[in-house]
Each structure stands twice: as C-alpha cells, then as structure tokens.
Amino acid sequence: MISMVAMVLIGAGALFFLAGTIGLLRFPDLHCQLHALTKADGLGLTLIGLGAALLAGSVGDIARIALICAFAALSGATCGHLIARHARRGDAEGRDV
C-alpha cells in the first residue's frame, strides 16, 4: 500500500519535471520560462522526495531526503529571484550580455 502511494507520488513528480521542461522549451520569453520552471521543479522534486521518503528504511535516509528537498527549494527560489532581477536590470540598461 505504502509503496503504491510512493509510486504515484514519484510518477506525479516526474510529470511536473516534464511539464517544466516543455514550458522551458515552448514559452516565448525569459520571464514566462522562469515562471514555468521554478514551479515545476520545486513541486516535482518535493513530490519525488516525498515518494522516496516513503520508501526509506532508516531515519538517516529520511533526514537526508528532507535536507536535499530543503536545499533544492531554497536555492531554486533564490536563483529564480536572482535571474529575474538580473534580467530586468539588463532590459532596463538595454544590454544583452
């Protein structure tokens, strides 16, 4: 039963990654792409982390998975912010590099 739930969660997470990649490829400009992928990879990794935690046998493994998801979520959010900020400045100054 638990492994069924884990499989569903992991599969759903993978779908979010696919959606994020499609958004990255199909959306026209930087800000839309950023929008697609920060949500997709944040949620996707959390779902896969939850699924993996259900499969974990030991407390140490669960702690590692929690740490991975926390690091990824924090750096995903910060990097999204930094990139958007940087891109907006670049637009304002009319630079392209």
Binding site: L30, L34, I68
Partner: peptide, 26 residues
Amino acid sequence: PAPEARLMAGQLLGTTAVAILLVLWG
C-alpha cells in the same frame, strides 16, 4: 539566446539530476 535562459535551463537540469538520483536510490 540570452545567457540567463541558458543558465536557467542549467539550473533545471541540476534539479532533474537530483530527482534522477532520488529515483535511482529508490
């Protein structure tokens, strides 16, 4: 074409690699 877009894509690839590792760990 923008460097920002390339880096952003690199970021997504990194997260995807983390997800792959979690699945392989499973």
